[in-house]
Simulated scan of single mutants.
Amino acid sequence: MKNALLVIDYSYDFAAPDGKLTAGEAGRAIQGDIAEKIREAHKKGTPIFFMMDLHYEEDMHHPESRLFPPHNIEGMPGRELYGTVLEAYETIKGDPDVFFLDKRRYSAFAGTPLDQLLQERGINTVTLTGLVTDICIMHTAVDAYNHGYGIVVPESCVASFNPEGHRYALDHFKNTLGATIEP
């Protein structure tokens, strides 16, 4: 098994108490575990992909503009990595196995070079961490499954502003996508 770590949407807007679409305390509670996963992966030479939601100010054409308040706006502080995840990133950025990619849809695969970069590195399994379990993590998991990747989801590294959606997503990952759910 050759693995890659994906850190999805762990931004100020999704994690901070005053973020525009915050996952609240649940979102902040996972930052230490994500930072530890980043440190472990880097130490092992595992490729790490920071996949960040990207929106433009007053973009009424993006489908999310009808569903959620403006968030993760280009050039704004809300789009920056948050807390100890930011600190972990700062220590490894510039490494050739560390990537920071923009995404415009829920899935980290949609419209990004992620699949190609994983294939070039012989990756066959992705570990998914970040926010929000029942939105971007779920859509990424479904696309990973459809692309033939094995999926690992550390439960301590994902969260949602919707506790029921979070539980549903974890069950879906395990029972429908065959993902390994770690503590």
Rank of each mutant, 00 (worst) to 15 (best):
V158M: 11
L67S: 12
C157M: 07
H147G: 01
G19F: 01
Q31M: 09
K43C: 05
Y82I: 02
L118E: 10
G45C: 07
K93F: 00
T84V: 13
E90S: 05
G75I: 05
P17L: 00
M60N: 14
H62Q: 11
T180S: 11
D134K: 06
A41H: 07
T46P: 10
M60A: 14
M52C: 13
E80Y: 05
L5D: 12
M138F: 08
S65G: 06
E25P: 08
M1P: 13
F50I: 00
R167Q: 15
M60I: 12
F68V: 09
L54Q: 15
R121H: 10
G94S: 03
F99N: 11
E57N: 12
M60H: 14
H61S: 15
A144V: 00
L131C: 02
T129M: 02
F100Y: 10
A29N: 10
D33G: 04
G122R: 09
L131G: 02
L54F: 13
G83V: 02
A179C: 06
P69E: 04
A179E: 09
P69N: 04
I48L: 08
L81F: 00
A15K: 06
G27T: 02
S156N: 15
D59N: 13
F50D: 03
L67H: 13
L128A: 06
E155K: 15
N3I: 02
L114E: 10
G150K: 15
A169R: 03
S11R: 07
E25I: 06
P47C: 03
V85W: 05
E182W: 11
D143F: 01
P77W: 05
F109I: 00
S160P: 08
V153Q: 11
I123C: 08
S156T: 13
E64V: 03
I34P: 03
L131S: 01
D95S: 09
L67V: 06
F49E: 10
A110E: 13
P47H: 03
